[in-house]
Design a protein around this nucleic acid. Structure first.
Lengths: 350, 350
DNA sequence: CTGAAAGCGCTTACAG
DNA sequence: CTGAAAGCGCTTACAG
C-alpha cells in the first residue's frame, strides 16, 4: 500500500496547501531509511552509493511510484533534462522524419524534447531560442545556418551545446550534420544532361536557403556546358503544395514550350506536376523529364515513378542527436562537420 | 547597456557558482525600485499593481532581457505553463495538422506544448502520462479513448484538466472533441450503394480503434441491405503505407474478382491502390470504386482524384485546445462533447 | 561512502 | 496597493 492511498490524493495534514500531492524525495528517503542526498544519488546513479542502500532506494521509489520533480531538479542543478529542437516547419514530412529519429535517440536517455516551429523565420527562431534558453536545456538542435546575429550570440553566451542540422558549415567549431545541398542540385543537372536533356528549368516555391543552394548547384553545372542554354528559373513565394506544382508546371510549359527537363525543389511540387501531366496527357518523361527532391514515400509508387534525391533526413536527426549527447557529456573531439551525403534515385519520370 | 555586458556572462562576484548567469527577479526588482513580489505581480499581470510601478518593472525587464526562470516558477506555484499533448503517431499527417492547430492556440497564451508520441500503445501512453504529470502541466490533450485504467486514475487523481480528441464519448464529464468515426464509415457505405456498387470490401492496416469503428459503421449499413452481400474485411497488422495499399488492392481483387467497391481505412492505402490500378490498367472507378479517409492534400490532385472523408483534424486541435484553456480557467459549463462532423468529398474514384 | 546545511529563483499566504 | 517571511523539492559544495 502506498502512503497515497491512506492519505488521499490531496495529501496528509502534515503537508501545506502548496504541496503538489506527490511523494517527495524526503518521504522516499525516510521510507528507504537513508538521507535525501543518498536517495538522490542512488536515483541518479551518480557517485558511489552502497549497492545495498541503492537497492532499498529503488525499491521504495517503485513502491511509492516516485518520480522526481523536474522543476526542483532544474532549479537546484541549474540545468533541465530538456533538449530544444527548432525546425522551420511541422507540416513538411521531411522534418517529421528527422524529429522522430531525434526522439528515438534522446527519449531513452531520459531527455525531454521541446519542439519549436519557427516557420522559416529567423526572427521567430530568435524568439524561440530566447524562450527556450530560460528552460536551461542541456542542448539545442537547430535547422540550417541562417540564424540572426542575436541568436548566435545568445547561444554562445549560454555555453549550451548546439548542433546544426541539414547543412554543412566550414565555420570552425560549428557542429553540423547534413549534406551538400549545392552538390545535390549539381547531381540533378548532371543526371538530366546524361539523359540528353538540353532545355532545363528549376522550379521552386517558398525558396528557403537550402532550396536556393540546390538551384545554384543546378545552375553551376549547366553554366559549364557551352552547348546548353542557361536554365529557366521559376520561383514563387507561396508555400509549396501539390496543387501549386501542377500550376507551375503548366505555366512553365506554356511560357517555354521547348523545356525538356525540370528540377523541382521538392517532391510535392514534382508530384503535382506529374498528376497534372497525366491529366493533360503530357508524356513523362517523353515530352519532359521531371526530378524532385527528398524522395517522399509516395514518389516511388506513383505512375510514372518519380526520380528524386533521397535525403538522409532520419540519419541527420539521429547523428545530430548523438553528437549533441556527446557534447553534453563533454566529449567534443570528433570532426565538427558530418556529411551524410545523398542519393539520386533514378526512376521512370526522367 | 545591460548589467550583463559589464558583469560578463558568468555573473558578477556576488553570484555563487550555482547561479545561472541570467538576471533574476531580485535584480530586476532592485533596478525597477520595487520589491520582488511587486515585480512578479507586474510581470504576470495579476492582482492590482500601481500602473506606474508596473511600467517601471516592464521597462527594466525589457532592458535586462529578463525572462523568468520557469523551473522556479513551477516549483513555487506547483504548476508549470506546459500542456502535454499525446498523439499515437508523428509520421501521420493527420496528427500533424492537429498539432499545428493546438500550437496556434496555446503558444500565444504563453503555454509550452509537450508532445508525446505513444505509437498507438496504451501502455506507452501510460508511461508518458506518468512522466508528464511530474512536470505539473496545466492541462493534457489525449487522442482517442483507449487509455489504460491506470492512466485514467492517474489523470483523475491529478485533478488536471483533460480533453480527449478525435472520438466522441458519452461518459459523463468527459470533455471530448471529435466526430463520429462510426457514422463516417456508414456514410461511405451509403455512398457506394448509391453509386450502384454491390460487392464491397473494407481494407485496413494497423487497425486502430477509430479505423475499427469506421469499419463497423460500414458493415452496419451494408448488413441492413438484404440484396447486398456482406462486405469482405481485409485487415493486416503492418503499419499503413502507400506501397501496402497497392499490395492489398491486388490481393483483394485476386481473391474476390467481382469486388466493385473498396473502402480503405485511410488515404495512404487508397492512394497506393489507385497508383497500382493505373499501372495495371484497372479502370477506376469503372471496374472498382475506391474511397479513402482523411482527405490528405494529395488526394484532390491525383488521377483519378480520390473520393474521401474530409476530417476536421485542424479544427479538432483548435477546439480541443480552446476547451482545455477554458477548463484551466475554471470555466467548465459548456457541453462536454463537441461533435465537429465530417464531410464526404465525392471525386472521380467512386 | 554518507550527510547536515545552504541555496537555486520564484510564488503563496499572510499582514499591513 | 505593497512587502517581509516562508517554502516549493530538489542538488551542490563541503565536511567527515
Amino acid at each position: 500500500m502506498s502512503p497515497r492511498s491512506s492519505d488521499g490524493p490531496s495529501g496528509g495534514s502534515s503537508r501545506g496547501s502548496r504541496a503538489s500531492g506527490r511523494p517527495t524525495l524526503a518521504e522516499l528517503a525516510r521510507i528507504a531509511g537513508v538521507s535525501p542526498i543518498t536517495a538522490s544519488r542512488a536515483l541518479r546513479g551518480v557517485a558511489s552509493v552502497d549497492p545495498d542502500l541503492a537497492r532499498r532506494v529503488r525499491e521504495a521509489a517503485a513502491a511509492l511510484n516516485y518520480v522526481a520533480n523536474p522543476a526542483a531538479r532544474t532549479l537546484a542543478s541549474a540545468h533541465s533534462d530538456a533538449v530544444a529542437v527548432l525546425i522551420p516547419s511541422l507540416s513538411n514530412l521531411l522534418f517529421i522524419d528527422t524529429l522522430e529519429a531525434i526522439h528515438d535517440v534522446l527519449m531513452p536517455r531520459g531527455l525531454e524534447v521541446l519542439i519549436g516551429n519557427f516557420h522559416y523565420s529567423p526572427e521567430e527562431e530568435e524568439k524561440l531560442v530566447r524562450n527556450y534558453l530560460a528552460y536551461q536545456p542541456r542542448g539545442i538542435l537547430l535547422t540550417g545556418l541562417e540564424q540572426t546575429p542575436a541568436t548566435r550570440s545568445l547561444l554562445k553566451a549560454s555555453g549550451i551545446p548546439v548542433v546544426y542540422m541539414m547543412e554543412l558549415s566550414r565555420e570552425a567549431g560549428l557542429h553540423c550534420v547534413g549534406f551538400s545541398q549545392e552538390e545535390s542540385g549539381a547531381a540533378v543537372a548532371r543526371h538530366l544532361l546524361a539523359r540528353g536533356r538540353r532545355h532545363l528549368a528549376y522550379v521552386a516555391a517558398q525558396l528557403d536557403p537550402r532550396a536556393l543552394e540546390r538551384g545554384l548547384g543546378f545552375q553551376r553545372v549547366l553554366a559549364a556546358e557551352r552547348e546548353v542554354r542557361p536554365p529557366v528559373w521559376l520561383s514563387v513565394p507561396e508555400p509549396s503544395s501539390v496543387a501549386l506544382g501542377g500550376e507551375l508546371f503548366v505555366r512553365l510549359l506554356e511560357a517555354y514550350p521547348d523545356i525538356d527537363g525540370i528540377f523541382f525543389c521538392n517532391d510535392d511540387l514534382a508530384q503535382g506536376a506529374i498528376f497534372e501531366a497525366t491529366r493533360r496527357q503530357v508524356p513523362i518523361p517523353g515530352r519532359v523529364a521531371v526530378v524532385g527532391f527528398n524522395d517522399l514515400p509516395l514518389s516511388a509508387h506513383m505512375a510514372p515513378r518519380l526520380t528524386s534525391i533521397r535525403t538522409p533526413r532520419a540519419k541527420v536527426g539521429e547523428a545530430a542527436a548523438r553528437r549533441l549527447v556527446a557534447l553534453m557529456e563533454g566529449d567534443c573531439r570528433a570532426e565538427p562537420a558530418i556529411d551524410l551525403g545523398f542519393e539520386l534515385v533514378e526512376r521512370e519520370s526522367s
